[in-house]
Structure formats: structure tokens, C-alpha cells
């Protein structure tokens, strides 16, 4: 179980203020979506949470502790970065095995528990049948699942995924979201940056809506995805249907300002 919190978090990238004063506490067992227009600071927020970029002001607390070292964070929070670029043509199983790095000493080999975690992660992401294939030769959907398996192999109690749905067809998008939801329901904290509002509405327990580095709305999807909020933050009109089990959101047009 891991809780991630920020207090007055500010991040500057060069001169640009990417995150401005975000206070948020993310608790285990939830699937939390971070939404907002391009450049709203979503990726910067999660990268600061992971300690990949420095907070210029404020604090990031993981389980109430500040300034954890990289390996400690790596064992608590798995990270699925944006994009699918792989720099070497590794076999799928080797790629997934990279997820065990935070648990290995400098020269130690994979032990039984590592092998078990790797296999379990491949089963959960449904890539066991691909294990001997070369990861760079897979289709986009297969590769996304393999990278997800790599993140799951860490066996961390929290998972942060940056735009895991990019370049996936609807079927694979649903597969990935269902998997993230299953992780959350099993007790993990799952945080994901999303652009697809319909998917965010359908799957997330909680949404953080960001605008120009600020966290402007935080709550359940049906409270966050209102016509007002979408108009103000995205400048779009959307058809919103709150009748069913989960809200349906369909962006239909750009608003003139």
C-alpha cells in the first residue's frame, strides 16, 4: 500500500512553470486519471511524484516520507513512460525482466521470486505467448501490453502510467484500462494520464483536471466532467450523459471564445 501526496508542489522547466502549487493526496485502491489539455502539466506532475524531476517548491511525500532515494521509489512505484520507443531489439521476456531491476543487487542474478513475478506479470498483461518474440517487431497493441507487463513485473504497490492508450485501437484501449482497473481493485494505487475523456469517464474512480499547471477540479468523474468544466478548461462542447452506470462524454465541437 502506497500513498502519494504533494504539498504546494511547483515545477519549473526552464523558465516555464509547468506545475503551480498542486496539493493532492492519492490513496491506494483507486484508479486515478489525470486529464487536461496539452501542456497542462500532467506529465510534469507525475514525473515530479516519481522524483524524475526536481520540485522547485513544495514537497512530494511517498508514504509520508520526503526525499526517498531512487531505488526506494522504484520499489514502491512502477512507471510506464509515455511512448513506445524501445532502443534495443530485446526479447519480450528480457524486456519484462527489466522490471525486476529495483530488487536486484549490482551483480546478483534473477532468483525464483523474480522469475515468478516476471511470469505473473506476463500472464496478467496476456503476453505470455509472446515471450520469445522480439519486442521491436510486435504490433502497437502487443507492444503496449508488453510494456505494461514490464511495469507490472516491478511488483510495486503503485503504478503510474503516462498516456498508456496512445496509438491503441478501441479494443486494446479497453484491455489496458480493464487491466489498470483490476490492479486498483486488487489494492494498488494506479495513476494514469489520459487524453480520452470517454475512457477516463468510463474507468476512473477519481479524476484530476489540470489547467496551466494548476489542479483545477478533483473528484468523481461525474462531478469533474461537467459541461462547464470542459468548456472552461478545454474550450469544447461535449455531449454528456449521466443516466447510465458511468458517465458518457463525447466531445462534439470547439467553443468560440
Amino acid at each position: 500500500m502506497v500513498t502519494i501526496a504533494t504539498e504546494g508542489l511547483e515545477v519549473r522547466l526552464g523558465r516555464h512553470a509547468a506545475v503551480r502549487g498542486v496539493d493532492v493526496t492519492l490513496e491506494p485502491g483507486r484508479l486515478v486519471g489525470i486529464i487536461g489539455p496539452n501542456g497542462a502539466g500532467k506529465s510534469s506532475l507525475i514525473r515530479a511524484m516519481l522524483g524524475l524531476i526536481r520540485a522547485d517548491a513544495g514537497r512530494v511525500l511517498i508514504d509520508g516520507k520526503e526525499g526517498m532515494d531512487r531505488r526506494e521509489i522504484a520499489r514502491r512505484i512502477a512507471y510506464l513512460p509515455q511512448g513506445q520507443t524501445l532502443h534495443w531489439p530485446l526479447a519480450v521476456e528480457r524486456l519484462v525482466a527489466l522490471g525486476r531491476l529495483p530488487h536486484l543487487g549490482p551483480l546478483s542474478r534473477l532468483r525464483g521470486e523474480d522469475e515468478a513475478a516476471i511470469e505473473a506479470a506476463m500472464v496478467r498483461a496476456d503476453v505470455l505467448s509472446l515471450k520469445d518474440r522480439v519486442a521491436t517487431e510486435l504490433s502497437g497493441g502487443e507492444r503496449a501490453r508488453v510494456l505494461l507487463a514490464r511495469a507490472l513485473a516491478v511488483g510495486a504497490p503503485a503504478l503510474i502510467a503516462d498516456e498508456p492508450l496512445a496509438a491503441l485501437d478501441p479494443g486494446h484501449q479497453i484491455d489496458v484500462m480493464a487491466l489498470l482497473q483490476a490492479e486498483a481493485q486488487a489494492g494498488s494505487l494506479v495513476v494514469t494520464v489520459l487524453h480520452d475523456l470517454a475512457m477516463a469517464a468510463r474507468w476512473c474512480d477519481r479524476l484530476l483536471l489540470m489547467e496551466e499547471g494548476r489542479l483545477v477540479v478533483d473528484g468523481a468523474p461525474r462531478d469533474v466532467l461537467t459541461a462547464d468544466n470542459l468548456a472552461r478548461v478545454y474550450g469544447i462542447a461535449a455531449r454528456i450523459d449521466l443516466e447510465g452506470d458511468w458517465p458518457l462524454v463525447l466531445p462534439v465541437g470547439r467553443l468560440e471564445n
Binding site: 524524475l52 531512487r70 511512448g83 532502443h87 529495483p102 549490482p106
Partner: peptide, 23 residues
């Protein structure tokens, strides 16, 4: 020879490697 693991982790890019605890 000491840094083989780091090179493997870099397959996932800089952020990916650092998020795996690599210095």
C-alpha cells in the same frame, strides 16, 4: 563492466531507467 544493468535499463529511455532506480 560494472554498468551492464544500467545499459539494459536504458532500453526504456532515460526516464524509464531512472524510474527503475538507476543512478
Amino acid at each position: 563492466l560494472a554498468d551492464g544493468r544500467t545499459l539494459d535499463a536504458l532500453t526504456l529511455g532515460e526516464d524509464g531507467a531512472q524510474a527503475l532506480g538507476i543512478d
